[in-house]
Design a protein around this nucleic acid. Structure first.
Length: 224
DNA sequence: GCGACAG
DNA sequence: ATCTTGTCGC
């Protein structure tokens, strides 16, 4: 049977009320990055592979890597990415022996039409502090940050003008990434942590996400 | 109606 | 987000 996106939107509105966007005070020792790959992303159903990589902080040394495989039956529709990816993401997350202090999710947090992007969805469901780091904009208004590494500008809600997150230049001369809190952190805390991570990263994609992505490609090849 | 649209 | 090499620009 087909997936009911109307009900999915209602579910997002309910989960939204469970969001806790508070300053992140606890010390950070471990950060996780995650990502998914699909054998055929243009077909549904398809097979998905998920990966989590746990890194020490602030050294960003790899501490643990896990992956999981699962059939994915829900298509990708903008605004509803979580319904396609969360089940596999959770299955993979459960395999971790080292639970991280915060998870960096590949996608948006509250910079979302209903303030519940995949990072916020993951954060509410797991109770683990989460931050969204997306490669493209989805929702909100912003100005282009300066071209220097570490430059950023706020992403504001079109209706209320409230700050939802930040557009961050992770490296000089590259397109910026989009940072927004998922759960148990606020915009400022999310930005502060990402600035530290980006400062120790050499590439456009911050280390946690980039290493999870690279690991997936390894797993994918070895799984032929 | 039109354009925009994470992965 | 998949399949894929070399090439150009900073």
């Amino acid at each position: 049977m087909k997936f009911d996106f109307s009900k999915a939107a209602k579910a997002q509105n309910i989960l939204r009320s469970k969001l806790r966007l508070v300053p992140f005070k606890k010390g950070v020792n471990f950060i996780a990055g995650c990502d998914l790959t699909f054998l055929n992303p243009y077909k549904t159903p398809t097979t998905g592979i998920g990966a989590f990589v746990v890194l020490s902080f602030p050294d960003l040394e790899v501490v643990e890597r896990v992956y999981a495989v699962m059939n994915v039956n829900i298509p990708y529709v903008p605004g509803f990415l979580a319904f396609r990816e969360i089940p596999l993401l959770l299955r993979t997350f459960r395999k971790l022996k080292n639970k991280p202090d915060v998870v960096i999710v590949d996608g948006h947090g509250i910079a979302h039409p209903r303030r519940l992007g995949i990072a916020a969805h993951f954060g509410v469901v797991t109770g683990i502090p989460a931050i969204g780091c997306a490669k493209k904009p989805l929702y909100g208004e912003f100005e282009e940050p300066c071209n220097e590494k570490g430059c950023y500008s706020p992403i504001k809600a079109p209706d209320t003008g409230k700050v939802l997150g930040y557009v961050l230049r992770s490296r000089e001369n590259v397109k910026p990434v989009y940072i927004s809190p998922g759960n148990l952190v606020d915009s400022k805390s999310a930005l502060d942590l990402m600035l530290k991570i980006v400062d120790r990263s050499k590439y456009r994609i911050p280390e946690p996400t980039r290493l999870a992505h690279n690991y997936l490609q390894e797993v994918r090849k070895s799984l032929v």
